[in-house]
Simulated scan of single mutants.
Amino acid sequence: MKLGFIVNPIAGMGGKVGLKGTDGAEVLKRAIELGAYPEAGIKAKKALEVLVPYKEQIEIITSPGSMGEEISKEVGFKPIVIGKIKDTTGPKDTEMAAKEMIHKGIDLLLFAGGDGTARNIYNAIGNKIPVIGIPAGVKIHSGVYANHPRAAGEIALKYLKGEEMDVKEVEVMDIDEEAFREGIVTAKLYGYMKVPFEPDLIQNQKSGGIEGEEAALDGISDRIIEDMEEDVLYIIGSGTTTRPIMEKLGLPNTLLGIDLVKNKKLVASDVNEKEILQYLKDNKAKIIVTVIGGQGYIFGRGNQQISAQVIKKVGKENVIIIATKKKLMSLGRRPLLVDTGDDEVNKMFNGYMRVRTSYTEEVVHMVKGL
């Protein structure tokens, strides 16, 4: 079987530094200036390692250097490399690689990136062959991604081994990053791609909207404010569920960023990972996060600024999860998910945690580290 393998090496670099994405040369430059470093390759490697026991039966066709060649060789494959090494890569390189791989007759395309990368792949190949996305970006609204890197490898292996599984057409979504940085989420459907479908391993498309939940959010925010302790730094996660807390405190809110509050006053707004860690040196802290509707993530999607290192310093016992009952019901019986990129931190969350669902109520919900 022939496996196409593409890594977008800059995917996700804007996350921890608070840039909400890495689309565009200027944004990438700014991310690097803020101390961002490539992590997509680390996640892609986790997926590819699953395939290593079958490396003699799988032929990998990949792009040069950091776009796939280095990782393939590092884990023990002898890939066929197409294209030329470049100092910097961009969307056109991803599209050209995908087109060339189709010409080489690949059976499946495994790629690492975010929604922008999925869109590039779609532009190049449409729904000609099945694909699997390794989640490595800041924005991951599309349904083509596995729910964590190793799951992408597991799906690829099952498909390449010829195991019986459904192949479904799922949405390729992307949002306007510039509007996103201004707190406006404008998601657009670009098309559909085929994905080998394993319900427990494929990430659901993100669901949005909180209409009709104002009363529950009002109660949640009242209780959170009432319980706030003096001289404790509160790391307020992104999203519309945490927004009422800031509004009731009379503080400006970064809807899609991370804000810091102490003694009910704003300490800093729209902070990145480095800034959070700096404030943690002198403060006891708690983290307030919500659940991504339809997907269940509490860490690792859209709030990468609250990194594994931040979580370690704060401690699991100081993580406060808030969500309306409607949002939890959107998950069915699926667990809440943690995908920080750090296995130790992910496993730390395995088990059950309390979720504040109204002023008076909490529920206990299973959490799974990926």
Rank of each mutant, 00 (worst) to 15 (best):
R223F: 10
I6D: 00
K347F: 04
S63H: 02
K92V: 14
L331I: 09
M13V: 15
N272I: 07
M96P: 00
Y359F: 12
K16W: 06
D282R: 12
E177S: 06
L217H: 02
E344C: 01
G133P: 00
N123I: 12
I220W: 11
D231Y: 09
M228Y: 09
T117Y: 06
S221C: 04
R333M: 15
D176H: 13
D87N: 13
P64M: 14
V50K: 07
D270V: 04
E229R: 15
I10V: 15
K168W: 08
G341F: 01
V267W: 13
P38N: 09
M246K: 09
P64G: 09
K158N: 11
I235D: 03
S358G: 11
L331E: 02
D93Y: 01
Q57F: 10
G18I: 06
N350M: 14
P199G: 05
S221H: 03
I132A: 05
G68E: 05
A36K: 12
I71Q: 03
A156D: 03
V75P: 01
S66Y: 13
G21N: 09
K264D: 11
E273H: 12
E163V: 04
R333P: 04
A11P: 01
L110I: 10
K316H: 13
S207P: 00
Y297T: 01
P135I: 06
V319Q: 01
K73W: 04
E214F: 02
A151D: 03
K2R: 15
T241A: 14
F197K: 04
A215K: 15
N263G: 08
A11Y: 05
V167D: 11
N346D: 15
V289W: 05
D93L: 07
L255Y: 09
L160T: 08
N253K: 06
G105S: 12
P53D: 12
P9D: 09
I42Q: 13
H103M: 14
I235S: 04
V338H: 06
T117F: 11
D218A: 14
T357F: 04
K46V: 01
I225G: 09
